[in-house]
Every structure is written in structure tokens, then in C-alpha cells.
Write a protein that binds this DNA or RNA. Sequence first.
RNA 1: GGAGGGGUGGCCGAGCGGCUUAUGGCGGCGGUCUUGAAAACCGCUCUCCGAUUCCAUCGGAGCGUGGGUUCGAAUCCCACCCCCUCCGCCA
Length: 419
Amino acid sequence: MIDIRLIRENPDLVRRELEKRGDTFALDEILELDVRYRGFLRHSEELRAQHNETSKQLGMKKEKPPGLIAEMRLVGEQISALQQQTREARAALDALLLELPNMPHSGVPVGRSESDNVVVRTWGTPKEFAFEPLPHWELGEKLGIIDFQQGVKLSGSRFYVLKGLGAQLQRALISFMVDVHVREHGYREVYVPAMVRRECMVSSGNLPKFGDNLYRDEQDDFWFIPTAEVPLTNLHREEILKLEDLPLNYVAYTPCFRREQLAAGSDTRGIKRGHQFEKVELYKVTDPQSSDSELENLVADAEAICRKVAIPYRVAQLCTGELGFAAHKTYDIEMWAPGCGEWLEVSSCSNCSDFQARRAGIRYRPGRGAGTQFVHTLNGSGLALPRVVIAVLENYQQADGTVLVPEVLKPYLQVQSGC
RNA sequence: GGAGGGGUGGCCGAGCGGCUUAUGGCGGCGGUCUUGAAAACCGCUCUCCGAUUCCAUCGGAGCGUGGGUUCGAAUCCCACCCCCUCCGCCA
């Protein structure tokens, strides 16, 4: 959420920043509602101040004059009516504020589409194969480790079943990645619910605007998380954190659920995009001064995984038009997949500045006696599982259709050579 | 799922229609005393919103959440959320 006071005091700045995303926003309506809201609020507070004073005096009197009580009742009714108007204006204002995306960081390149993203670095060189490398769906089927038909049988399109070493490879990657982040990067491992209350989705920015992308249990109003970012954002909801406890670094492994209402046929091959997938998520809560540098640390922590599994990757900075709703600045990490011949997004690391913190009410106190301030939150995959599985299969494949096990995964797998 | 009990400031815990700007204690901070520390004593300790002459002052709100009754609600009523105990069921 953007601070209403900033919009009030500097609407042109906010408008200019938001329009970098390539869209227009209802700022005039917001400003108008804000004036209305404060008018009602001020009026009802003035009346209430008088009313409080008279009531207090009335309470001290032995004789209660009936005329005065009748008069007070009328004032009370006026206050109720004003409060109702105040509430309505506030609710309308909040509804609009919740629809505004975050403002981009000043260093984000202005642009409209993927082609305006900026590749900031590349690591490794795509391997030259002496044969035509196969896409993972062919490799997986030949090896009997990915079964698409059974996925469809159980749940429909965009579901798959991993079998034997396919399932084990994914599980090995999960353990390996979490271990690296805990032991080498200082993250605290947490296990969180995959179904959350509606307000958690509002805090993270998924609701009210993106409900169409979420699965939901209507009976109990549980919402299925599209990423661990949602529960992690809410871990400290409505808390005032101590400066000395920042930054908080969390790593969580969770399943993720996305409705992905894509056109039939797009991205349907393979396990790149499904309704359910596994992800290891990194999350940081920092003070506002540190979030810029912590984003660099976060990206480096995610990149470390790519290097350890020795798969070429590149890091792209997203342009303003590609930023997610809550994001202030984002880097994507893309691994090279020689079989499908594309750079696969395996991580998206974002500094959300105070956008989610404001929605979730997560604050800290900068110093003794100082007022509270909103923290900054950052998140990034470290990494998204099915796509790393794809990259491993396609990069480590051999001429005979078998796949070698990356060195770092050997301690985590039952086999030492490959499959 | 059934029955009962409960949610009050950082924590514990009183209050059960106006005397509460929420008693008291613990913790925390500052001070007095002391060579220093402890003890004792004194004082201070929350958040949010709005207005203005904006390092401040004034007003409003907040006792799980949201409504309601009343001139006046932490206190009474309704709904919901959460926690605890027992029973049932279950991994």
C-alpha cells in the first residue's frame, strides 16, 4: 500500500512513478475520497469531544435533567450518522488504495515488456553438446521419471507425476537448497501453513486484485498459497520489531498452488508451469536503509545454488512494466535449459520496500524514544523446484539418454552416478 | 463435532454501567544514594488517526474482532475469531 499522506502531499510524484508501469491509476478519485473522509472524521470528532464533555458532567450530577438527556440523545444520533459516513468513506478509500501497485525504485529501467529488462550478469557458458540435447519431457518419459498421463488422470492438465529418481531428484534438490541457505547463508528454516486466511493474502498483495489466480476452500475460507512469500509476510503481521533483531532471514520450503488461467496450449509441454509445484523461498525483513543492499545479498544467495549445481545462468533486472504488483525492484535469475532452448526463470528476487509492511502492519523502532516506522520486506525463490529439475535433466543429459547426478546432490541421492 | 471456561498494556493480573486520563505487580528506562554495584526510594513507560502556529500542542479512537443498547460501555446484548479443559474422532 502506498502511504495516503504521500499521495495527499505529493500526488504528482506518485502519479509519475506509478505511470512508469505503463498504466493509469485512480489518484484523483483517491484524493477526493480522502478529503471527504477527513471532513467527516473531523466533524464527528468535534461533536464527540463536546458530547464527551457534557456526558462527563452529567455523570457527576445527582439530578439528571431530562431535557439535557434528550438533547444528548439527538447529538448522539448525529454522531452515529457521521461515523457511518466516515466509515463508508474510509472503506471506499482503502479499497482504492489496496488496488494501487508499489512505486518502482529509482534505479529500475523504465520499460514496457520483457525486452526492456536488462541482463546484469551471466555466469557459465552453455555447454556444447555433441548430440542434439533433448527437452526434459522427452528425457523424463524415456527414463520413466516424469509421467504426464498419470498427472492428467489424477488432476487434469498442468499436473504431472514424478517417479523414482525423478521424485528423488526433486527431494534431493529441496534438502540441498535448504541446507545451503541455513548453513552457509544464515537463514532460519521455518515450516508454514500452505492454506491461509484471507487477510494474509491482502497483506502480501495477492488480494483483493488477484483472487482469480488463487485456489480457495470456500467452506472454511482458506486460501491456498501461490508462494511461501504469503505466509512469511504474515509471520510478523501487526508487530513492532526491535531494530537489533533486523534483518530477519527466513527460508521455507512449501508447495505452491496457482490457477494460471492461461490459454490452452501455451507452455503446456513439460513441467515448467503447473498448478502445483514446490519451491524453496528466501525472505528478509529489514530496516529501510538496508533493503537495497539486502536485495543484492538475497540474489547472491539464490545464485549460489545455481553455481553449486554448475548450471549456466543469467540475472536480469526487470523493467518498470514487468514489476510485480508489490515489487519496488526485482531481479530474475534464469537458468539455461539446452533441451527446450530457453532461459528458465528459476527465481524472482524482489525488494517490496514498505508496500507489504504497510498492508501487514509490520513496523520497527529506529531508536530509543523514536516513533515506529514500517520495515521493508524482500523475497526470492531459492529456487523454484520443477524448473531446477528441468535444468538439471537437460544440462546433465548424455548421448545415451541417461542423466548424470550433479556433484553436490550425490550425498542426497541414493545413486552415485546417474540414471 | 459436543459440553464447559476464558481473551485487559512488553508480561502477570484487578476492574463487571459514570469516582479509570484502565488499580497493583513484574520487566524496561532515567534519577537519588554509592568508590562501583546491589538494595531502597522517586519519576517515566502503548499504538493509531486527525487538526494546527508540526523537534510541540490540542482533539479523537483502541480492553480479541465487528455490530448494537445507553446521555455515558473494559463492564450489558448479538455475531464472529482465537485459546484452554473434558468427551468423541483421528495421523
